[in-house]
């Protein structure tokens, strides 16, 4: 440290080739950092600031209102019935049902894909393809598939002499219908991560277990699960965050993107968007994002502390 400072301060400091290289490396690396700070970090802090103001993007002045916006969030949540309350309740439903179902299915599929050899690449592509396809495009296709009467799903039901289903048009079925699409679309990613995790487990462990006469369940419970733990933690955190931020499929699959029918599919992020850009209450919308931010932070910390214990 001291020597370096001397070198820089002394008149004998020279731009050696190695030093120049390092400086240029930092200059180039600074570009994404500046970009990230300006596009991601700064707006995040700006949202905190906006949430303390009666922020109307069209207005010249944005009066400071203290915690009024947060009081409104609490007030809306304590009402018997409010859009904000539905938004939080639905978002929690998406996470609570979406994440476990998606991860369990993905793990089962990954274990099967890990077994097969013949055409294994083709199968992996098939499971990964939905993940790389545009969400909006998929959501619109599903919206058509879900159509009453003429949608493919109802045509199949009719063919099987089963009763027609309203899917997206009824509050009871709309959320599960959207959830099914999101689980399917995001599953490819989880499958790939699990596959990579499974490949890391040495085969000798399984062979040893087999010699010891362990059942398939015991092998899974005591070898696969513990050694897959890093992948599980990673996916649990990532998928929980992604379900908490649910937005695009709901916009694309509901009438006029309103999160209906009767707010049965709306989410916190959709609520933020509509408040901010339809009603121009950007301050209130920001306070909702801060609450969501706190939720995501809390859930992530809990998940990390509970699930990332070291395994012997």
């Amino acid at each position: 440290m001291g020597r370096k400072a001397n070198a820089a301060g002394s008149p004998r400091f020279r731009w050696t080739l190695a030093r120049k290289k390092i400086v240029w490396a930092y200059i180039f690396l600074a570009i994404p950092i500046v970009f990230f700070a300006y596009i991601r970090i700064y707006p995040t802090f700006f949202a905190f600031q906006m949430s303390l103001h009666d922020y109307n993007p069209l207005a010249v002045e944005q009066p400071y209102v203290g915690l009024e916006n947060y009081e409104k969030v609490v007030e809306e949540l304590s009402k018997k019935k409010s859009v904000t309350k539905s938004a939080f309740r639905n978002t929690i439903s998406y996470v609570v049902f979406g994440v476990p179902i998606q991860l369990c299915l993905a793990l089962a599929i990954a274990m099967m894909l890990n077994e097969i050899r013949f055409m294994s690449t083709l199968y992996r592509i098939l499971f990964f393809l939905p993940f790389v396809t545009s969400t909006i495009a998929i959501a619109w296709v599903f919206r058509m598939l879900y159509q009453p009467r003429f949608g493919l799903f109802n045509v199949i039901l009719q063919f099987l002499s089963l009763p027609q289903q309203p899917f997206l048009t009824r509050p009871q079925q709309a959320l599960p219908s959207i959830l099914a699409l999101v689980i399917w679309q995001g599953m490819g990613f989880a499958v790939i991560i699990f596959l990579a995790g499974l490949k890391q487990i040495p085969r000798t462990y399984y062979e040893a277990a087999e010699v010891d006469g362990a059942s398939r369940w015991h092998t899974f419970r005591f070898i696969t699960m513990p050694l897959l733990n890093p992948s599980i933690v990673y996916l649990l955190v990532l998928q929980t965050i992604s379900f908490l931020r649910m937005f695009a499929p709901v916009v694309a699959m509901t009438e006029q993107g309103r999160g209906g029918p009767l707010d049965s599919t709306t989410t916190v992020v959709l609520r933020v968007y509509r408040e901010a850009f339809q009603s121009f209450n950007m301050g209130y919308a920001s306070s909702l994002t801060v609450v969501l931010f706190a939720m995501i932070l809390g859930v992530t910390i809990i998940q990390l502390s509970v699930t990332s214990r070291r395994i012997n």
Partner: peptide, 12 residues
């Protein structure tokens, strides 16, 4: 569908 959004984004 985006008209109000764009006005809201352009003003600030």
């Amino acid at each position: 569908a985006n008209f109000r959004d764009e006005l809201a984004a352009s003003a600030p």
